[in-house]
Simulated assay, not measured.
Amino acid sequence: MEKWFNVGKIVNTHGIRGEVRIISKTDFADKRYKSGNKLFLFMPQSNTPIELTVKSHRTHKNFDLVTFEGHDNINQVENMKGGILKVSESQLGALEEDEYYYHEIIGCTVTTLAGEEIGEIREILSPGANDVWVIKGNGSKEILIPYIEDVVKEVNIKDKLIKIDPIEGLLS
């Protein structure tokens, strides 16, 4: 059975020329929305994905705006609202050293270099210069860890274990 990974959710249309507004949940938006790439639209009321080819991509505020080949006006994309865009596992591709897909990082256990368990990564935020990993700590508190070389010292995807060297004040 094919494994699918979320790219984003179509939340609305934008203008009248077939552009859709997407809230992205993807690691590499520039790669995913590159002209000519294939995405698969999953609608809540259907079990069959619809294959779409990206025609254009741009960003506007916190959204990705995308048009698809063969969908040139608002009437052709109106029914896509609420749909989830996905890619298959075979479309993921190889990454550079020290690059990871979100699904590989989410669920990893984080410990300090001394072996103290901090918690499990629940979410990844992309506010700008670097990603921020949201950890559900052993208490009810969320801990934010920047994905930077000074803090993240070892990432072991196979064992789902990440070791960090927390800078002063990071865990308090």
Rank of each mutant, 00 (worst) to 15 (best):
L144Q: 12
I106A: 03
V132L: 13
I16V: 13
L92N: 06
N138Q: 11
S56F: 05
D72H: 08
I106E: 01
L39M: 05
P44F: 00
L161S: 15
M80L: 10
N47E: 13
E96L: 14
I143E: 01
K3A: 14
V54R: 01
V151M: 10
K9D: 08
V54T: 01
A114Y: 11
L113T: 14
N156P: 02
D131F: 11
D98Q: 12
N156E: 10
V77G: 00
G83A: 04
D30R: 12
F63W: 07
T59S: 09
I23H: 11
V152C: 05
K61Y: 15
G15K: 00
K81L: 07
L170Y: 00
T26L: 06
P166S: 05
L171T: 07
K163N: 09
M1F: 08
S24R: 04
G93Y: 07
N73E: 12
G82F: 01
I50L: 12
R32V: 07
R58Y: 12
P49Q: 01
G83S: 07
I118G: 00
S140F: 14
A129Y: 13
E142M: 14
A129K: 15
T48F: 08
F5D: 03
G119I: 03
E120H: 11
V155Q: 04
Y102L: 12
T67V: 09
G93F: 02
E142F: 13
D150Y: 08
G119M: 00
S172H: 15
L170H: 02
L52E: 01
P49F: 00
V152D: 04
S24I: 09
E149C: 11
I148F: 07
E2Y: 10
K31A: 15
E120S: 15
L52W: 00
N79K: 13
P146F: 06
L171V: 06
K86N: 07
F68D: 03
E89M: 07
K153R: 07
K160H: 10
F42V: 09
V152F: 09
T67H: 05
S172D: 15
Y33C: 03
P146V: 05
N37W: 03
G115P: 09
C108Y: 03
I23D: 12
E120M: 14
V134M: 11
G36V: 04
G128C: 04
F5P: 06
S35V: 10
E2N: 12
V7L: 05
D131A: 13
Y100W: 07
G36C: 06
Y102Q: 10
I124P: 02
N75F: 13
H57S: 14
I23T: 09
T53R: 07
H71V: 04
I145N: 06
I145Y: 00
L39P: 04
L65W: 01
P44G: 03
N75T: 15
R21I: 03
F63V: 03
G139D: 15
L41P: 00
K61V: 13
S88W: 10
H14V: 13
V54Q: 02
C108G: 08
E117D: 09
L125V: 10
G15I: 00
K163T: 05
G119A: 01
P44R: 00
E97L: 11
I124L: 03
K55G: 07
S56W: 03
I23M: 11
E99I: 06
K3Y: 13
K38A: 13
R58P: 10
G15C: 03
G137R: 06
K3V: 14
K160C: 08
G70E: 01
P127L: 03
E2M: 10
